[in-house]
Design a protein around this nucleic acid. Structure first.
Lengths: 135, 135
DNA sequence: CAGTATCCAGTACGATACTG
DNA sequence: CAGTATCGTACTGGATACTG
């Protein structure tokens, strides 16, 4: 994905054409939301939080391979969108917990379904691509 | 999303950490597949094909706002992954039809679910972001 | 611990022009 | 009609260093 969320907010609603059944071409709703969650880490982050709140560092490990920078940004966006809540406890050392909100919880099952699909069909896809399975 | 599919193929398997429940942190399967379908147009394209084969031009209109270049690329990738089939009819003028494969069909319901979720929760998300609903 | 700041490489994407 | 070729750019995301 590549159009910034800010830019997207600003222009929300361009490039409409409306020629096909409405579900995926409704003038941007789907695209808008899809864009928002289809960056490299959002779904993965949401998935990592599916079974309970996690702290920043825990998330970092749970997701695996994410940079601090991207975790910060992704969380910020998820919080902005209301999919994840952030709770900072005024302690030393600081403790911050992230948790899926009620809204986020409605998305989590889809994320899980997607993840399951991915695992289930991974080898098939790789085979199609001429990759050795599960390499 | 942003790491090229080719690059991804080459490195498939780095950045593993393995600390959390296995569903979303299985060393890359989910990430690998997620990356593949979470570019700007793949899911949208797949969704546009959900109710039957479409020609290149029809897809272009159905998706709305996609450039020829991106449609070409997206289709190429989907075909590579085995999610979509391409059939060229040797006629003049040329006619090419794209259709969801059996594998692709297993993903379509998830795409639709995601789309429905997006539509259903769009306003809520926009509200959270401080946007006027459905603007 | 939980971030922020800065730098920079790579690339996804759009626009435009051209072709069988 | 169904693409390909080329170019420019805004953006993503990693690395590294630093802070309350």
């Amino acid at each position: 994905m590549y159009v910034s969320r800010k830019a997207r907010r600003a222009v929300a609603g361009i490039t409409r054409t409306r020629t096909c059944p409405p579900l995926l071409n409704d003038g941007g709703a789907v695209r808008e939301v899809l864009d928002r969650i289809s960056d490299k880490w959002s779904l993965l982050t949401l998935g990592a939080l599916r079974s309970g709140p996690l702290r920043f560092g825990e998330l970092e490990k749970a997701i695996g391979g994410i940079s601090q920078r991207m975790l910060t940004l992704t969380l910020k966006h998820l919080v902005e969108d209301g999919l994840v809540s952030r709770t900072a406890y005024p302690e030393v050392p600081p403790r911050v917990e992230y948790e899926v909100t009620a809204l986020g919880k409605t998305l989590v099952p889809l994320v899980i379904a997607l993840a399951e699909w991915a695992i289930e069909h991974r080898d098939e896809i790789n085979a199609n691509r001429g990759c050795s399975p599960s390499e």
